[in-house]
Design a binder for these strands. Sequence first.
RNA 1: GGAGCCAUCGCCAAGUGGUAAGGCAGUGGUCUGCAAAACCACCAUCCCCGGUUCAAAUCCGGGUGGCUCCUCCA
Length: 506
Amino acid sequence: MTPLRLHDSLRRQKVPFEPLEPGKVGMYVCGPTPYAPAHIGHAYSAISFDTIRRSLRFLGYVVRYVRNITDVEDKIIRRANELGEDPMALAARFADAYNSDMAQFGVMPPDVEPKVSTHIAEIIDLTAKLVANGSAYAVDGDVYFQVDTFPPYGKLSGMSVDDLRAGASERELVEKAKKSPVDFALWKAAKPGEPAWDSPWGKGRPGWHIECSAMTVAHLGQSFDIHGGGKDLIFPHHENEIAQSQGAYGTETFARYWMHNGFLNFDGEKMSKSLGNVFGCDQIADAVGGEALRFFCVKHHYRSPIEFEVDEIRALDGTPTGVRFRSLEAADRDLEYFYVTLSKIDAFTAQGGDGGDGAVLPEAEKLVRATHEALADDFNSPKVMAAMHEAAQLGNKLIAEGKGIDKAVRRRTLARVARDLRAVGEALGVLANAPATYLRDRRDRLVRRKAIDVTKIDRLIADRAAARAAKDFTRGDEIRNELAAIGIELLDTPQGTDWRVHDDAS
RNA sequence: GGAGCCAUCGCCAAGUGGUAAGGCAGUGGUCUGCAAAACCACCAUCCCCGGUUCAAAUCCGGGUGGCUCCUCCA
């Protein structure tokens, strides 16, 4: 097992990773509050932690991965009331949609997917524990965590309780019932039109943060290895989780390492509905395919803010007619390179065998080793990409020319390159498709986007084949140019002429 | 107002003390009837100023520019 170092948000530096149990990792990631279709930001977060999970497996750890669904929450209730739908049903509907969206991006289902609605008893127990030991107090059916009973409060986010108190007072959002404006709700008294459960404090429902504290204990224990989530969750969500869990079980408990992923930026700005730059998962998958987004994500380091380029497409009169995801199209082209490479290697080894067992060219040994090193250094997936490019180049080179290389060694090396590319791809969640499937889907997508007439292409290719057979290269080139004008590139191979859609780079 | 992050080639993006990964685009070449694909070669001294050090993109101080959090937000 490769020794791992990872960046801990609490200590604000890379630290050696020492799991509670050698070889095993217990990991909790904050999942969605499903009240609307998932957007690209949700996907980025899910992909980031899925990549970390896959990387841990690649490095030899056995991972228990818990990702919750917060299905009882203000936004869900509000939306459900607007639609006249049962809140839990609405949450279940969007949770299902979320999971199928994420599957498109290669996100594996979590080992455990706990929901608030099925952990009410645990939440009440935890809340009662906090009340009993003086960390929390009940007022008129609400229960609040008393922040000043927990001195380490603010350590994760770097917030000072005094500043927070001042800020909260300024905003005049102080609910009179709270002893201090920084205290936060663990349990909320029932209001009309809201789901409610019986509790020692009357009918009510959980506050926002308490569910994660209750569910981590239930599924990973009072102390566990890694807690992850989006950067935005550091305050107040994760800060409050720490206060609740350690307030209940002691300061040496809860997450041993905190990991947070960076945000996606659009032209330097964060995504927000008011800027009109929130893109749905379905829109992305439809435009470039799910794997392109996945590839785009792992090309970047999970902690860095990512620049996501979107071009507006306008009609001649200036009316916006749609968008192009420039970064994703670039990622898709990159992916195409790997799939074309795999396809060539597969065809080569299928034809004359894989060379059997034995030595390979030393360059082919590098990929897996480099991947271990890169992933063990705080999951540096961009570094892995660099190694993958080197390996693919080696593969293409060996296919293009084999002179001076032992025939069996060449075949074995090629087989090894393809195998390792796929193994490394698995660690990043890419290259799992059959090359032919990916390449066909990609071409179909581009054909659709550009409204290309495929029968016309087939006809012209047949015409050109006839012309070339008759050595009429002038006519042949005319046809090539004609197709090029509508964005089709011809690929003459020994097996005949194939074609691809020219994907204008920018 | 308080807290924090970032600034690396035309674009994207690694690198956190030892002399700038990788990709896209570009240029030249190989291959090709011509092309495409593929391969080969070329292509940056790291926002500015000062400091520490034998040595800094990397550390410290000061600027400038950008972003985030403190309120729902992946």
